[in-house]
Design a protein around this nucleic acid. Structure first.
Lengths: 131, 131, 131, 131
DNA sequence: GTGGTCTAGACCACG
DNA sequence: GTGGTCTAGACCACC
């Protein structure tokens, strides 16, 4: 469970942590029942204040993604994997829909959008292609 | 020049105004030399605090999209149309790139992303129909 | 909107504030659309740290009881009254059910419970009776 | 002596054990002189950390409900039955008083409270049937 | 050891 | 002026 935080980003640090934990669960790096790093541990690893990590964990618990056992630690909730995947999928779809709306609103054609997408798909990952 | 603002959105009100003015210019609804509503006029129309509208206009002027002539009004800058189109295109491309990165990060395949895009293009608008 | 906090109670301060705000709404002291005291104001009034008040307000917003408008203030949500009343009713019923379960579990008879209730009703409020 | 613990409840695990032991004594399931399970036995049965069980036993001994005889075991104290019954009765009465105060505070009428009680008495158990 | 809470003080963005 | 966030350090209860 490696968390990398950018302190000066426009998205709050506590939200970055929430997102990355959920992403780790979504991609299977953490599975239900696994123990995730303690508040103090992650705070030390990520160079983030423990209070900020605690807030992230509180939010994750509120969303039902993790379960915290006092004096023991924080564990991934039973059905967290599917829940996180669903969340990510919904978020991505919403994001795409909003982006498309904005793009068409700004006068771009659907073809422009497709081209921009293909460019991003090709350059962002390079699944085999040269960079 | 009709501006619609959502006060509870995550994007600031002043930014919504900036974006919508630039969008109007980008799609040709406002052309260089046109006069856009005064601060107090737009404030009254949009039910927004005049200070907020003023800030939006300050930002638009800073970007060279409009020029204000004291005692006269605010007019669209000579080369605003192309500038706004360029801005929109860049913003859209950046947005798509970020979204694609997030999506692949979350374990979606490029194909998933393409499908979501096509769905958004098909369902969200008329793919080119008049509004 | 008068909030009284007991710092040494077993229920956290932020939760006390949440409960009292919801109670004020439930009994009609605050109605939808009303502005509730600012974070700093309530912090000053209640002798509580602003961060603690902020956390209470964040929780209230999460529950849909209030809506916060940045730079403006916090207002009671449209359907907050009924929602709070419902919450209170559910909480009370759950509490009674749990209590009854415990009481019968401990060997008390239903009659014992009824007597204890009548005593509490008589002494706790004195709706007209001498104390 | 069957103890069932809910790790995720708001009442601490050690307190749940204390309460259940006292309840068992109050309802006569354990009588003075009876031997109750050893720390490690109950820890194994209840899937609870032995330290936690030890703390519960320490608390029970502090309250005079049990006495531990080194090398022999833990036995129910001579006057534990009446003491536990008294404790339970006091706890229940306090709980009812607090609940009634909250309920009236929230605007419910005494009649509402009585109805909720009767519902709980009627539906929650068999009002005296064997279990 | 663990998480939960609170305080104090700072900075930022928005209106 | 408003709320939002972060840091720092302290205390508590639980396991």
């Amino acid at each position: 469970m490696l968390i990398r935080v950018e302190p000066n980003a426009d998205v709050p640090v506590f939200q970055q942590i929430v997102d990355q934990v959920k992403a780790a669960i979504a991609r299977g790096a953490c599975r239900p029942g696994d123990v995730i790093p303690s508040v103090r541990q992650m705070a030390a690893d990520s160079l983030v204040n423990p209070n900020t990590v605690a807030r992230s964990y509180r939010e994750l618990e509120r969303e039902g993604v993790v379960v915290t056992r006092r004096g023991f630690g924080v564990i991934v909730a039973p059905n967290a994997t599917e829940r996180c995947r669903q969340d990510r999928r919904t978020a991505i779809r919403d994001g795409i829909a909003e982006l498309v709306r904005d793009a068409l609103d700004a006068g771009l054609t659907p073809c422009d959008v497709r081209n921009a997408l293909e460019e991003a798909l090709g350059g962002g990952t390079g699944t085999g292609e040269a960079e």
